Lab assay of single mutants.
Amino acid sequence: NQASVVANQLIPINTALALVMMRSEVVTPVGIPAEDIPRLVSMQVNRAVPLGTTLMPDMVKGYA
């Protein structure tokens, strides 16, 4: 199964993503693939992302 990017902490709106904020986990539904974690670093989220939430492409500015 494909691992997705999951929030490792609460990520406030407009926060630039850092490695420590993300982990990979096999979840349903599938979100952003875990292999894209390096690409996500320094991109901003466009909403608050609670701990344990799967990151979806529409949550990250400039990802989709």
Rank of each mutant, 00 (worst) to 15 (best):
Y63Q: 03
M22D: 03
V41I: 08
N14W: 14
V45K: 00
S42L: 09
T15R: 06
N46G: 08
M21Y: 08
A64F: 07
N8L: 06
M56H: 07
I37S: 04
L51S: 14
M56D: 04
V30M: 13
P57K: 10
S24C: 08
V20D: 13
Y63S: 03
N8R: 12
N14K: 06
N1I: 14
G52E: 04
P38K: 13
N46Q: 14
M56I: 07
S42D: 13
M22L: 14
P50E: 15
A16T: 10
M21T: 03
I32S: 02
A16S: 10
V20R: 12
A18H: 11
A18V: 13
S4E: 01
Q9E: 11
V30W: 06
I13V: 13
L17P: 03
N1D: 15
A64Q: 15
S42N: 12
V6K: 03
T28H: 10
A7M: 05
S4C: 04
A7H: 02
V49Q: 02
V20Q: 14
P12N: 08
K61L: 12
P50Q: 11
Q9F: 06
M59H: 10
V30G: 07
P29K: 05
L55W: 00
P29F: 03
D58P: 07
P12S: 06
A7F: 02
Q9M: 14
T15V: 07
M21E: 03
M43T: 04
M21R: 00
D36T: 07
A7S: 11
L51H: 12
V27Y: 02
V20A: 15
N1T: 14
T15I: 08
R47P: 02
M56W: 05
D36E: 15
T15W: 06
D36G: 04
P57S: 08
V30H: 12
V49M: 05
M21V: 03
V5G: 01
V5W: 02
M56V: 07
V60D: 03
V41H: 04
N46Y: 07
V5S: 01
A64I: 13
N46C: 07
N46R: 10
P33G: 07
L55C: 03
V45F: 00
L17C: 03
M43V: 05
T53D: 14
K61R: 14
A64P: 15
V30Q: 10
V30S: 13
V60Q: 02
N14P: 00
G31P: 01
E25K: 07
M56L: 13
V26W: 10
S24F: 06
A64R: 13
D58L: 10
R47Q: 14
M22K: 00
Q2D: 15
I13M: 12
S4W: 02
Q9C: 06
S4R: 01
L55D: 01
K61P: 09
A7V: 08
Y63E: 03
V45N: 01
L17T: 00
I32R: 00
M21S: 04
R39K: 14
P33R: 08
Y63I: 04
V26R: 04
I37G: 05
S24R: 09
P50D: 09
D58F: 11
V6P: 01
V49F: 03
K61I: 14
I37L: 13
D58R: 06
L40H: 01
E35H: 09
T28E: 15
I11P: 01
I13C: 15
V20K: 13
G31D: 02
A34S: 14
N8A: 13
I37Q: 04
P12I: 05
N8K: 08
A16C: 15
T53V: 08
G52W: 04
Q9R: 15
Q2A: 13
E25I: 05
V41R: 05
G31F: 02
M56P: 01
P12R: 07
A7G: 01
M43L: 13
S4T: 04
L55N: 02
Q2Y: 11
L19W: 09
G52I: 03
Q9L: 11
T53W: 10
A34W: 07
V60K: 02
V5P: 01
A64G: 10
L10C: 15
R23W: 04
P33S: 13
T15Y: 12
L19N: 06
L51V: 15
L40S: 00
M56F: 09
Q2E: 15
N8D: 14
V45Y: 00
V45G: 02
I11R: 01
V41A: 05
N46A: 12
I32P: 02
T15F: 06
P33Q: 07
I13R: 15
A34M: 08
A18M: 12
P38Y: 12
P38L: 13
T54Q: 03
M59A: 07
S42M: 08
V49L: 06
V60N: 02
M43C: 07
G62Y: 14
S24E: 14
V26N: 10
N8Y: 03
K61C: 14
M22Y: 02
D58C: 15
S4V: 02
I11T: 01
A7R: 01
D58V: 08
V27R: 07
V60I: 12
G52N: 14
P12A: 10
V6M: 04
V41Q: 05
V20I: 12
T54E: 02
R47M: 15
M56R: 06
P50T: 09
Q2T: 11
I11Q: 01
L51I: 14
Y63R: 04
V20N: 15
T54H: 02
M22F: 06
Q44L: 14
V41W: 00
N1R: 04
A16L: 13
T53N: 14
T53G: 09
E25N: 06
N8T: 13
N1E: 15
I32V: 07
N8G: 06
T28W: 05
G52H: 08
A34E: 14
L40R: 00
L55G: 01
V5R: 00
A18L: 14
L40K: 01
I13P: 13
P33C: 06
L19C: 08
L40P: 00
V27Q: 04
A3Q: 09
R47E: 15
Q44N: 11
V26P: 08
A7I: 04
P29N: 04
A3I: 09
P38H: 08
V49W: 03
I11L: 09
M22R: 00
L10H: 15
S24M: 10
V26Y: 10
V60E: 01
L17Q: 00
R47I: 15
V6F: 00
A64N: 13
Q44F: 10
L17W: 02
I11S: 00
M59N: 04
P38F: 10
V60H: 02
T54F: 01
V45W: 00
P33I: 15
A48K: 11
P38V: 11
T15A: 11
T53S: 14
P50G: 12
V45R: 00
I13Y: 11
Q9V: 11
D36M: 11
R23G: 10
T15L: 04
A7E: 03
S24K: 09
P12G: 11
